[in-house]
Amino acid sequence: MREAAALARIYLRMLLGYVRAVLEYRTDALILVLASVLTQLAGIVFLTTVFAQVPALGDWQRWEVIWIFAMVVLAEGIGSLCFEGTWHLALYINLGGLDYLMVRPYPVALQVMGSTLGPNGFSNAVLGLALLGVAATRVDVDWGPVTVGWAVLLMLSGVLVKLAISLASNTTAFWLRSPSSSPAGTVHTLGDLARYPITVYSTGVRAVLVVIPLAFVGYFPAASLFGKGTAGTIGAFTPLVAAACIAGAWAYFRAGMRRYDSVGN
């Protein structure tokens, strides 16, 4: 436990250290923040226009859909704010950068994940939290200590699922040996589908979103919170799914490291 705290403290220092670098490229950081705000704005404009036409998307009320959307924005925000380095793994592998990380007394995966910071993550996290805050007052949930606690646990689980998906999809780079992170980018792009209730899709698309557990970032946890039948029951397992995803991604990363060991440069 004390060891975990020490690892976390060092991780935080790495991130904070990078804030200075972000300030070095201030214009770029601002453009990135503006760009991500505009991107989320496009999504909000879309949802607002849709709900001006109809009161609900099937079973899902307006603010419940916004809740899903906001969970995905929050997860992406925390992903780029705290774990942006995950996206540099392919570069590390192919430019030999892992070697230095391996001769330091700190887990390699965490060094990679904390090696940089996405300023757009800040605006996304803030925007996601703000949307969740507003949505919380509009959805039909009896907020008490238990429901709030459960909602927070579901949110954290969703963030962890997204994090695990990013780590695992980027870990593929150990086998591909190309400095671009195309497969991970593709998975991330598919994440756009998970911003809406997956009930709007055909069975095939739904299956994809369950297998690559993107639906557990926003849809299933929200279904649990709002008591949506079977989906809600599945959603109650989100924390377990999150734990399994993290364990799986971690194991996959270790397999990648073994691969790195056996292939050589």
């Binding site: 770029d28 760009a35 991500s36 991107t39």
Partner: peptide, 14 residues
């Protein structure tokens, strides 16, 4: 005027 294109590209798409 910037060091990278990523943000500009994303903003344009949005």
């Amino acid at each position: 005027w910037t060091e990278s294109y990523y943000g500009v590209g994303v903003a344009r798409v949005a």
